[in-house]
Design a protein around this nucleic acid. Structure first.
Lengths: 341, 341
DNA sequence: CTGTTAGCGCATTCAA
DNA sequence: TTGAATGCGCTAACAG
């Protein structure tokens, strides 16, 4: 039978014949105060007997700290958000913290209203996470609490952030082609001007250049992050008499479209065409035939790192690296092969 | 500049020249007390001026209710968990509630320790969610709080639950084949004895029988929920001289393996072979070529319904349907075609 | 209609 | 070492 009124520390104190202070001390394992083993035992036993359970609300109120972190992200609209959540959640859990998730839908403002709700819950810190790398406008109210940006950044660069290393990722893609001996290389872009596109292409181009390969501008086609554009621009590239032997796609969905284009032309991957994608999108990249070699966007890791940074900040320790850049490893599968004459 | 000490209701009372009670009443929009418009305005204005923000911890303590729901699920290990989370989260948010997520890894016991932490947070209710439909052993402690089971059930049937209608799902799959004129039909199972397998096959078989078609036991092969088994058992089925013209797969991954088997034999889908899967697994089903017609497992909806039930329970209203069964709709894509002689 | 008062459960300062 | 007292911010009886 469940007790009508949950046991409190006062109840324990009464049962164990000590004061509430003592109970608080032993239950919180405070080492700065010496309490006889016997007393501790009595308290613990009484707590167990009464089925005592700490009241987080009371503790939060007294301590002025909830032990909660808030995470605002595009949970409903983006398949990538779940990975951020997973990483952050797991890390938070390991440090005995709960994560409060607030949905964001507005790409610009990240929902001040949602943040306000989080603040009402007195979260100890806030993570603002985007699902595509970009600059965001941070609402004024976040000034009231420690805050870190994940997969995004504020234009002023005042808030700590963790973002993927797009440039290094682009380099990795290039390296895969270089090592396979490709020189005639194409690229289908993601979108104009966004950090992901700019960074990836810059890294890609630089790495190629350092290997003595110049990326022919004619072989750079403007996609729009969809599979359709991958197909269309892929056809444009592959229909050329001097078609490239390798194509770097702005993301995995573009690569998927490119696969279709190649298949339609009777070109097989990787014999006739090598492909590298970006994102390592769950399921997609691994399940394409052949498996897509792609640069991973480590969302879970970014989420986890965000929590780490927040923990450090709330603990008062000063962060050394306030702008963390996360490595994007190459996931090697089967879509890159040696160039065949 | 952020105030050092956040404003409290007492501050507002002081500033507006009223009592704390009055402030509490107007800020909570209590309609059962009549307060002059003028007073309300003064209070609201003072609150705005002071940048007042409700303290959820204090409110929870005083009201003995946190406004939080707990969700324990296999967030780290299962790709399906995110859909439950998404559905539950979205629904909870709409009712001004936060969801506290606790990870579960133990398939049997659902982590009493995790539940204990949730209970310390004084969640108003608990959702225990599984990612594959099964019976679970519910820890004793959940007796202390309203609780609903999602995609699982307790053997005693005492706790409210929401589960998918596997049988009706199986019927839907059969119907798709029947309507396309198939009579020689195979099945690759998911696993022995689990509710999903039992229900799906029972529904499938029944629907066929009602159409005058008997499911040949020789064409029912034991898979194990993996793509590999889909390939292996698919080969076993398709290598027969009297191979089936349609195969119902226990899940989408099996269907994926079956696609490979068919491709290898030069059989094209749906011309030479019709396929129906189960799960409508994100990305996978839609991205297979051709798109996989499959029975959807509506995780998000189950999560949302779970929250609804919990809300009703915590509100004191008695639930009419304590064991909700969710419909599994057929997602029609391109893997089922008419039987070709 | 509004103010007074008394908790809610816990942490913590200060005495003893 | 332990206990008494106080405050955290808010809600809800109960008066006025």
């Amino acid at each position: 039978m469940a007790r009508k009124r949950p046991a409190t520390m006062a109840d324990i104190a009464h049962a164990a014949g000590v004061s509430r202070t003592t109970v608080s001390f032993v239950l919180n394992d405070r080492t700065d105060v010496m309490i006889p083993e016997a007393t501790r035992d009595r308290v613990h036993r009484a707590a167990a007997d009464l089925g005592y359970r700490r009241n987080a609300a009371a503790q939060a109120l007294a301590k002025q700290s909830s032990g909660l972190f808030g995470l605002v992200t595009e949970i409903v609209t983006s398949p990538f958000a779940v990975d951020i959540i997973r990483g952050a959640q797991q890390h938070a859990w390991e440090q005995d913290r709960f994560l409060l998730i607030a949905p964001s839908e507005d790409e610009q403002a990240l929902e001040p209203a949602a943040i306000e709700k989080l603040l009402e819950q007195r979260v100890d810190g806030l993570i603002l996470a985007a699902t595509w790398h970009r600059a965001i406008r941070v609402p004024e109210i976040v000034k009231d609490v420690p805050c870190v940006l994940v997969n995004c950044y504020d234009e002023e660069g005042v808030l700590p952030s963790v973002v993927p290393d797009e440039v290094a990722g682009g380099r990795r893609a290039a390296r895969a082609f270089i090592e396979a001996g490709h020189t005639r290389i194409g690229h289908i872009t993601l979108a104009e001007g966004i950090p992901a596109q700019v960074g990836r292409l810059a890294g890609f181009r630089t790495e190629l250049a350092e290997a003595g390969i110049v990326l022919d501008d004619d072989l750079v086609r403007a996609g729009d992050a969809t599979a359709e554009s991958g197909y269309t621009e892929g056809r444009a590239l592959l229909d050329r008499p001097d078609r490239p032997t390798a194509i770097f796609c702005g993301n995995d969905r573009i690569a998927m479209g490119l696969y279709d284009a190649a298949k339609e032309l009777g070109l097989s991957i990787p014999e006739d065409l090598s492909v590298v994608g970006f994102d390592d999108q769950e399921i997609l990249a691994a399940y394409l035939r052949p498996g897509l070699t792609t640069v991973a966007l480590p969302f879970a890791e970014m989420g986890a790192v965000g929590v780490s940074m927040l923990t450090a900040m709330t603990a008062g320790s000063t962060i050394d690296d306030t702008h963390v850049v996360i490595d994007c490893p190459l996931r090697i599968r089967s879509s890159v092969g040696p160039v065949t004459p």
